[in-house]
Every structure is written in structure tokens, then in C-alpha cells.
């Protein structure tokens, strides 16, 4: 698995500076905009805290989720398709499972680096009460990305036409991104929609990040969120072992 990861690190060597700059600039702009301007439009507090404090961990979770979909979805589909990265790798002793594992580790690393940059910016805004809180939120955001990444990779390796990825991005990922309690509380949604959002991964990720950041987390809900995301990650890996093998050993 680390052998397959090495390949992605070689590629990353050439592009990491650029991606880190984007990962820092993006949250910086958003938090500045919310803190300085938009936040004051939101009257009073949301769930008892200033809007910036409510917004930042939600945005962190949403960004991790979205980046994971892009890396695992488009990244995996092109590695199997146009770039033929996987076909090259399975001609060596590596198994399809290791090839998938290596790529997922890399996606996880990218999600982690993105979240680290975001958390650092949040710390700059004084949004954490302690460094322990910051670390907990960082890990929560990483899990929020890795869990769907595994499932998305397991599916994306079977996708040969990119437009389908775009469709899913637009009609599945974007609605989740916006309505999972990321930018406003799920409780403002109609009851039926609320129930749906509670069943989806990003709500668990966003609530996990936010409750940890605000210090409102209870052991029960934290365990529930972590278990949900953990099971999703494991399920993704198990399904991926099957789909990767099927696609790469034709």
C-alpha cells in the first residue's frame, strides 16, 4: 500500500505548494468575509454563538467532504481511464486492493493537509479554546473526508464517462454541501428534509466538527458520528476491493 502511495507522493512533489496556498487562502477569505461583513447580517447568535463560530467548523467539514469527492471521484476515474495509472501498477506485484489503498491514503493525506490549513486559519481567528480542541477538530474533519472518499473511490473506478461524475457532483454533493447543517442549522429545514440530512454523512461530519469546536460535544453524539463515518469508510474499502479487482483484472 505504501508502495502505491509513493507514486502519488512523487506526483504531489510537483504540485503541493500550489495546493497548500489554495488550502490556506480559501478559508482565510471566507472567514474574513463572514467575520467582517456577512456575519453582522445574521442577527444575533446562531445556536447561542456568534455566526463566525457557528460557520467555521461547518465550512471546514463541507470543504473536507467536497475535496474528498473531487480527489476520490475525478482522481480515481482518471487514474483508471486516461492516465492508466492503475493498469501500470497491477502489472507489478501490487494487488488491486493495494493500488486502491495507496490512492486512498493519498486522498486522506490531501484531506488532512487541507483541514490542517483550515484549522490553522481558524486558530488565527481565535476560534479554539485550546490546542487539544484544534487537534480534535482536525481529526474530525479528516474523518469527514476519508469516509466518503472510500465509497466514492469504490464507485468511481467503475465510471468511464466523466459527465456522470459531474452529474453526481452537482445533484448529490452540492445539495449535501449546502444543507447538511454546514452553513445554517438543519433545524431551519422542513421536517422531512431534516430527517434526510440526519441520515447523510456530511451532517454527521459537520455536527462532529462543530460540537467539538464549540465544546458542546457529548460522548454519545460524538461516538455516534465517529461510528457512522468509520463504518462508511470500512464499507467503502470493502466494496472498493471488489470493484477495483473487477475493473483492473479483466
Amino acid at each position: 500500500m505504501t508502495r502505491a502511495l509513493a507514486y502519488w507522493l512523487f506526483r504531489y512533489r510537483r504540485t503541493w505548494q500550489g495546493t497548500v496556498v489554495v488550502s490556506v487562502a480559501n478559508p482565510l477569505l471566507f472567514l474574513l468575509a463572514i467575520g467582517a461583513g456577512l456575519g453582522s447580517l445574521v442577527r444575533g447568535d446562531v445556536e447561542g454563538v456568534p455566526y463566525l463560530e457557528f460557520f467555521a467548523p461547518g465550512m471546514l467539514a463541507a470543504a473536507a467532504f467536497q475535496n474528498a469527492f473531487i480527489d476520490a471521484g475525478f482522481g480515481v476515474a482518471s487514474a483508471r481511464g486516461r492516465e492508466r495509472v492503475y493498469q501500470t501498477a497491477v502489472a507489478t506485484p501490487l494487488s488491486p486492493g493495494e493500488v486502491m489503498g495507496g490512492h486512498l491514503l493519498f486522498v486522506g493525506l490531501r484531506v488532512f493537509v487541507g483541514a490542517l490549513a483550515f484549522v490553522a486559519v481558524m486558530a488565527g481567528f481565535g476560534l479554539f479554546s485550546s490546542s487539544g480542541t484544534a487537534v480534535a477538530v482536525l481529526l474530525a474533519a479528516t474523518l469527514t473526508g476519508i469516509a466518503p472518499a472510500a465509497v466514492v473511490a469504490a464507485w468511481a473506478v467503475t465510471v468511464t464517462d466523466f459527465p456522470r461524475l459531474n452529474t453526481v457532483f452537482r445533484f448529490v454533493v452540492m445539495p449535501m454541501y449546502l444543507f447538511s447543517g454546514t452553513f445554517f442549522s438543519v433545524e431551519q429545514l422542513p421536517a422531512a428534509l431534516q430527517t434526510i440530512m440526519y441520515a447523510l454523512p456530511l451532517w454527521h461530519g459537520a455536527d462532529l466538527c462543530r460540537s467539538l469546536a464549540l465544546g458542546t460535544a457529548t460522548p454519545g453524539t460524538t461516538l455516534l458520528h465517529v461510528a457512522y463515518l468509520g463504518v462508511m469508510a470500512v464499507a467503502g474499502v470493502l466494496i472498493g476491493r471488489v470493484t477495483f479487482r473487477k475493473v483492473l483484472y479483466v
Partner: peptide, 27 residues
């Protein structure tokens, strides 16, 4: 050793890196 019909080389990497990465695949 396998030389596939389509080269499937990595266009993003250098010539040397293509060899190194492939060697790492073999451990």
C-alpha cells in the same frame, strides 16, 4: 517484465521518475 500495447507511461512525471516509481512498486 511487461510492455503493454499502449505505453501507459506517466506523462506528469519525468523519464527517471517513471522508472523509480515503477521500481518502488516492486518493493
Amino acid at each position: 517484465g511487461v510492455v503493454p500495447q499502449d505505453d501507459a507511461l506517466d506523462l506528469q512525471l519525468t523519464v527517471r521518475e517513471n522508472l523509480i516509481v515503477y521500481g518502488l512498486y516492486f518493493g
